[in-house]
Design a protein around this nucleic acid. Structure first.
Length: 230
DNA sequence: CCAGTCAACACGCGCC
DNA sequence: GGCGCGTGTTGACTGG
């Protein structure tokens, strides 16, 4: 697989991902033309050839050659009959497209053209392939996100149910079998604040009393030294 | 370019 | 074995 990675890097460079874009008038094949062959592990090479043979047999039986879909066949005048005929890409072409897609999900026109030439495909075929690939990747990702959100929703529903039960239990414990009324502390004493005349709780009453003492003392002191009103 | 759709093809399955 | 059917994949097209 190391070879693959190296090839992918070269491929990306060859496609001008790093800034080098083959000029349109340059009809020469891109330097990495044969990289597609290197991209296929040796083990798969035979398998692929076999697969291609099968494809070819399959296609020959239908009078079509799909290995090079963009090659103008002598009977291409009959293309109207097969206008919607599906041209299956070879494993080699698919693998190369996949490798490029992993690196860059979109290509500029020059890159598409270079790749098309390299893979012996039409520019439009490369364009359509990338469009489809992006759409299907997005669809898969949406499905994954949807599954994730469903699981989250299930977890939250369970948690919500659990918390509701817990709340019910706590309420049942607190209320208990006794009748519903507010239980006040036994030694509750209510105090009236002398300054604001509000009803105060026990501690508040003490604080207010202290406050009253301080205020009165302060008043007496101020009046004794002639600072009243300050 | 994207979303939606069509259509060809591959594949698995059950049935005879 | 092969036939029909359902389903998934994928290349291609269309309209916005």
């Amino acid at each position: 697989m190391e070879d693959d990675e190296a090839c992918i890097t070269n491929l990306s460079l060859g496609l001008g991902m790093g800034g080098h874009v083959p000029k349109k008038n340059n009809k020469q094949k891109v330097p990495c033309l044969d990289l597609t062959f290197q991209l296929c592990p040796k083990g798969e090479q035979e398998e692929e050839e076999e697969a291609i043979d099968v494809d070819q047999q399959h296609d020959m039986s239908k009078g079509l050659c799909l290995k090079h879909p963009n090659e103008e066949s002598p009977d291409s005048n009959n293309s109207n009959n097969a206008s919607r005929k599906k041209l299956k890409l070879t494993k080699e072409q698919s693998a190369t497209l996949e490798d490029i897609f992993k690196l860059h999900t979109t290509l500029n026109p020059a890159q598409k053209q270079a790749l098309a030439e390299q893979l012996n495909l039409k520019h439009r075929q490369v364009e359509v392939w990338f469009q489809n690939r992006r759409a299907r990747t997005k669809l898969k990702q949406t499905e994954v996100d949807c599954d994730f959100l469903k699981k989250c929703c299930e977890k939250l529903t369970d948690e919500n149910l659990r918390l509701k039960k817990e709340l019910q239990e706590l309420r049942a414990q607190k209320i208990g079998p006794t009748p519903l009324y507010i239980q006040l502390p036994k030694a509750t004493t209510l105090t009236i604040c002398s300054s604001c005349e509000k009803l105060l709780k026990p501690n508040e009453g003490k604080k207010a009393a202290i406050s009253d003492v301080v205020r009165n003392s302060s008043h007496k002191l101020k009046s004794s030294i002639g600072l009243e009103g300050i």
